[in-house]
């Protein structure tokens, strides 16, 4: 599949188009054309390196939403074996914006849960653009409890613009569904490793993201609201999304500096979508390592450490005098 380029990648796109053109030229002077292609390819790599060395938070947001970026089910195919998708919340419906099931990573049985976007228009609608409804979060909770009962660690993948804001969502208790997951995940007795693979949009992301280890892909984002949403509220205009993206510090690098992320995983040159194989190997190695480290923790220690981790969230001045 041809790579689709973002607006800030246009110079690279033009070079790549030229390379494609040369490839299709009749082979009258094959040697010199081959040289020219190699030269242009080197130039394209160089250009990509220099553009990607200075990405703005908004450009990273665009990469996190790239239509060709690997999604949860792609990683389920490339990292895990023996995957069996499990459906439904047992109460209302099967929300396709969240997928989950049993699988193995490096032979180790785990429960995997993640938000799922669609690749084409039809699939996007079916997956509701990766925006879960209450039944999605309740399916996730059901699978978490199943994992806990059989002492299986939990791996979650975050990739959502946010929980779906609709009439039905409100009628069926979107707030309660998200809140319940936060409550239950805080005390779940099995290890939880969360990876932000694309967009980490607000409470809809966090609802499957309370964890013992948080990893983020280099060009993924995680914040309380989308840059567009923040801009329209604070700047009164969604056009100020670039300013909002800067201000919110939603990139993996910035969040690691704030001490909110355990590990940032480097992406292939040009982003994860350029090389699904490479990013899968990186992610697999990191997930397997974190799972092995957590696997040896006694349950009490695991829960105490998670509780301390969650309690440490926040930056404030404390002038309380010791009694």
């Amino acid at each position: 599949m041809a790579v689709s380029f973002l607006d800030f990648e246009q110079p690279i796109a033009e070079l790549e188009a030229k390379i494609e053109e040369l490839r299709h030229v009749s082979s009258d002077v094959p040697v010199s054309i081959q040289d020219e292609i190699s030269r242009l390819q080197a130039k394209s790599r160089q250009l990509t390196t220099s553009i990607f060395a200075n990405l703005t938070p908004w450009q990273i947001t665009q990469l996190a939403r790239h239509p060709q970026r690997p999604y949860t089910l792609d990683y389920l195919g490339s990292i895990f074996t023996d995957f069996h998708e499990l459906h439904g919340d047992r109460m209302y419906a099967d929300d396709l914006a969240i997928v989950g099931g049993l699988a193995r990573i490096d032979g180790r049985p785990v429960m995997v849960i993640g938000q799922q976007k669609g690749r084409d228009t039809k699939e996007r609608v079916r997956r509701n653009y990766g925006m879960p409804k209450p039944e999605g979060y309740r399916k996730a909770l059901r699978l978490m409890r199943l994992a806990e009962r059989f002492r299986l660690p939990l791996v979650t993948f975050i990739d959502t613009p946010g929980a779906y804001p609709g009439v039905g969502s409100e009628e069926r208790g979107q707030s309660e569904a998200i809140a319940r997951n936060l409550f239950e995940m805080a005390v779940l007795s099995v290890p939880i490793v969360t990876a932000v693979i694309g967009e980490g949009g607000s409470g809809g992301a966090l609802a499957i993201g309370v964890c013992d280890r948080l990893v983020m892909l280099q060009y993924s984002t995680y914040s309380v609201i989308s840059p567009e949403g923040c801009a329209s509220i604070l700047w009164k205009s969604a056009d100020k999304k670039e300013l909002a993206a800067d201000a919110m510090g939603l990139t993996a690098a910035r969040l690691q500096k704030l001490g909110l992320v355990d590990e940032v995983l480097p992406e292939p040159l040009g982003g994860a979508h350029r090389d699904h194989g490479a990013i899968s190997r990186t992610l697999q190695t990191a997930l397997a390592r974190h799972l092995s480290e957590l696997a040896v923790r006694p349950v009490d220690q695991l829960r105490a450490e998670r509780n301390a981790r969650i309690a440490s969230f926040g930056v404030f001045t404390d002038l309380t005098e010791e009694p």
Binding site: I178, A179, L182, M185, A186, S202, G203, L206, V210, Y222, S223, V224, A247, M248, G249, L250, L255, L258, L260, I310, A311, F313, G314, V315
Partner: peptide
């Protein structure tokens, strides 16, 4: 407070 605020939900 961006992500730090979001994490107060978990807290």
């Amino acid at each position: 407070e961006a992500l730090i605020s979001l994490l107060q939900m978990a807290k």
